[in-house]
């Protein structure tokens, strides 16, 4: 395992530490002079940056509204396809497809579905309802992006939970049935506790990745309208690759990092509860 440990340290820790060091410097990759030490300046100016504060709130809302839905729907789907029947492979694949299609390609479809004359408005007008400006309205844009993200994330969560369901010994169900447990009680007292370790993983990973939500925002709304979908990671990307300001981008990244770690740790503790 020693080479593996060295590998992990080199390729996973070093870039992070390097980024952390950069957050105390002013650095453009284009510059010839290299990073220039500025101390905690980037962090202190973030404190008074209203755009950053707002992006944090938007990111928080985004995580909170996507996470429960995607986990709940994925759990339902996982339980539906967790039985052996002819064609189960087809359904599992169908539900996993969104996760594997090229995001840039499929985002064109979503843009069109959300557009003025797109699919969603056609469906609304079929029912005699007025069309919506899904991505152009401050009230709906973040929800529209969330819907696409839920769609994209369903498959992976389903697969994880499916694997988790496999790890619950069948004997536990049988024993509970012998004790006269109904379907709800089986779920409540056998399935959920059995899923706990995998659920911890799913929730922690979803928090980590949702809080870094960027790609779906980039392709759908570019942070608009009126900044209502500008997540922190969108700001970080813009700062780093559009404005070439890697120092302040790194500072934002590590503030986000601290918050993500804090929240995922709390939720992991919350779900694992007392270990039986």
């Amino acid at each position: 395992m020693a080479p593996a440990a060295v590998y992990v340290i080199v390729f996973h820790f070093v870039p992070v530490v390097y980024g952390f060091v950069l957050s105390f410097t002013s650095y453009s990759p284009l510059s010839r002079s290299g990073p220039e030490f500025v101390g905690g300046d980037h962090y202190t100016s973030l404190l008074s940056d209203p755009d950053f504060g707002r992006a944090l709130l938007i990111t928080g809302r985004y995580v909170l509204q996507v996470l429960p839905l995607t986990v709940a729907i994925a759990l339902v789907l996982a339980m539906l396809v967790n039985r052996p029947f002819k064609g189960v492979g087809f359904f599992r694949s169908a539900l996993y497809i969104p996760h594997i299609v090229s995001l840039t390609a499929v985002s064109m479809i979503w843009l069109w579905m959300y557009s003025q004359n797109g699919l969603f408005n056609e469906v609304l007008s079929f029912f005699g309802l007025p069309g919506q400006a899904w991505l152009l309205d401050e009230q709906t844009a973040l929800n529209a992006a969330s819907a696409m993200r839920i769609w994209k994330a369903l498959g992976s969560n389903m697969v994880l939970l499916l694997a988790g369901l496999q790890s619950i010994p069948k004997e536990l169900y049988e024993a509970a049935r012998v004790d006269g447990a109904g379907r709800w009680n089986l779920f409540r007292y056998v399935t959920l506790p059995g899923l706990r370790p995998i659920l911890v993983y799913v929730v922690a990973m979803d928090i980590i990745f949702l809080a870094q939500g960027f790609a779906e925002i980039f392709v759908l709304t570019q942070g608009g309208p009126l900044g209502s979908t500008t997540t922190v990671n969108y700001l970080i990307y813009t700062e780093a690759f559009q404005y070439n300001q890697f120092g302040s981008a790194s500072a934002m990244a590590f503030v986000l990092f601290a918050l993500i770690i804090g929240f995922s740790y709390l939720s992991m503790r919350g779900i694992s509860g007392r270990r039986n």
Binding site: W112, S115, Q116, N117, A133, L135, L136, G224, P225
Partner: peptide, 21 residues
């Protein structure tokens, strides 16, 4: 109409002049 909508990068068939919008 359609403040904020991006027709510049829309597919040809979705151009406002084509849709008559």
């Amino acid at each position: 109409a359609g403040l904020g909508a991006d027709y510049s990068n829309a597919p040809t068939a979705q151009q406002p002049l084509v849709l008559g919008t």
